[in-house]
Design a binder for these strands. Structure first.
Length: 444
DNA sequence: TCATATT
């Protein structure tokens, strides 16, 4: 009694279903959509180019989307361009890939929960084959004979997947189970990452100290976009069995198809509410540590390195011979010192300006709690810092402990290497070296 | 352990 018809007419029937969105990185900010379109049209059919712009300033963010009419065309664009050529003004080759969630959108992947523990592939196959050809079935197992109660499943078409979802979700108990199956669209990568990030927050582990240069925030470690945190996709929509009209090409972003009383499953269950369980952290610690209120506020966990060249804010430079540090005049007075550093604080971080060749540093073992600003501060004694960037995990906001510092001169960079490489910052020894050259200049 | 970004 499977009515595949019903499914197909709710999906609009436009040819758009087939089109594929690609993400393109390393696009020089000055390029126009028309220029990009012309360029990409040389290698594939491209319907549209959309430059991704800053919401506020409308300036290009250095990347764009391409809309291709089919996967074939999209793949042509990817293989012809990805990592293949560097546009004038870019620092590394074009990055061309499926936009976030796009691959998954095309995959029609379903999540199946509440499977019996002892279910076999054959049983699941038999049940789901009623609705279409199963392209891929993966039952998550603890051991060969026991399932974890869930599976991922792909059909050839979205209509088939939708038919199975509508026919079985909440309505079908498999032999050996007292609860009905739960079927939903599998989470996208983004949803998984968001959930992971939330879990990290929840457990309070792995979260760097809130930097004293920012307002203390419960979510200081997360990118702004994650505020407020996800509240558990669709977990509180009991009773929504109604089939929403699936809009044209996009499946719903959130899943409200879980029957009431169903707890979900280990993979998809998340803490329902984080906000109320979060406790402010690290404020007291900050106030009681010796640095707070001194002229050393921006460097939590900083231990005066023996090798440290002096001059971080209030410290009098050690009469060093490299001309970069502020000259020591009669005053090592705090007000004066902090004025100096405050004025340079605002310029060194943020944009990723590259300096001239050999003026850019790669730094590893940066203390976890350092942000761009702290990195910049730590390196400003050796020359003019054009930019300082600590890399951060996109999903969790946690520092990856490496970053880049760019100076305006190779001399400054070399000086920083001499003074900072191997010095003790936080727990580990800093590794400071010249950044590898990324540009692929055509050998021929 | 060497460069992001997803309207």
């Amino acid at each position: 009694m499977a009515e595949a018809e019903k499914a197909s007419d709710s999906s609009g029937g436009g040819g758009e279903e087939e089109s594929v969105k690609l993400f393109v990185g390393q696009v020089p900010k000055h390029m126009t959509e028309a220029q990009l379109l012309a360029m990409f049209k040389e290698v594939a059919i491209v319907d549209e180019v959309n430059i991704i712009k800053d919401k506020a300033t409308k300036a290009s963010r250095g990347c764009c989307f391409l809309i291709c009419p089919s996967r074939e065309e999209a793949d042509k664009a990817v293989s012809a361009c990805h990592n293949k050529r560097t546009l004038a003004g870019a620092s590394s080759p074009l990055q061309v890939k499926y936009a976030d969630g796009e691959l998954e959108r095309l995959e029609h992947k379903l999540f199946v929960g509440m499977l019996p523990k002892n279910v076999s592939d054959a049983e699941v196959s038999a049940l789901f084959s009623q609705y279409g050809n199963i392209k891929d079935l993966q039952i998550l197992r603890g051991s060969p004979r026991t399932s974890k109660g869930c599976a991922f499943l792909k059909y050839e078409t979205k209509e088939q997947a939708l038919a199975a979802l509508e026919a079985l979700n909440g309505k079908c108990k498999m032999e050996g189970s007292s609860v009905p199956l739960v079927i939903k669209w599998a989470d996208t990568e983004k949803e998984r990452q968001a959930r992971k990030a939330q879990k990290a927050q929840f457990w309070g582990s792995n979260v760097p100290h809130t930097s004293p240069t920012h307002q203390p925030s419960l979510f200081g470690a997360l990118p702004m976009g994650y505020l407020p945190p996800y509240n558990g996709f669709g977990y509180q929509h009991p009773g929504t069995y109604g089939f929403m009209h699936y809009p044209m090409q996009n499946r719903p972003g959130f899943h409200n198809l879980i029957p009431p009383g169903n707890q979900g499953n280990a993979l998809h269950g998340g803490p329902p509410d984080l906000v109320s369980t979060m406790a402010p952290r690290s404020f007291a610690a900050m106030q009681s540590n010796g640095y707070m209120g001194s002229a050393f506020p921006a460097l939590p966990g900083f231990q005066y390195p023996l090798a440290y060249p002096g001059g971080m804010m209030s410290n009098r430079p050690l009469g060093n011979s490299h001309g970069a540090a502020q000259p020591v005049s009669m005053s090592s007075d705090l007000t004066n010192a902090s004025t100096i550093s405050n004025s340079s604080i605002t310029m060194g971080s943020g944009d990723q300006i590259e300096g001239p060749p050999d003026a850019n540093l790669f730094i590893y073992h940066i203390p976890q709690e350092f942000g761009d600003q702290e990195l910049s501060n730590a390196f400003q004694a050796f020359g003019r810092v054009l930019s300082a960037k600590v890399f951060v995990d996109k999903a969790t906001g946690v520092s990856k402990c490496f970053g880049f510092v760019s100076y305006d001169s190779p001399t400054a960079a070399q000086c920083a290497i001499n003074m900072m490489n191997g010095s003790q910052l936080g727990g580990k020894k800093l590794k400071v070296q010249l950044k590898r050259d990324n540009k692929q200049s055509k050998p021929y």
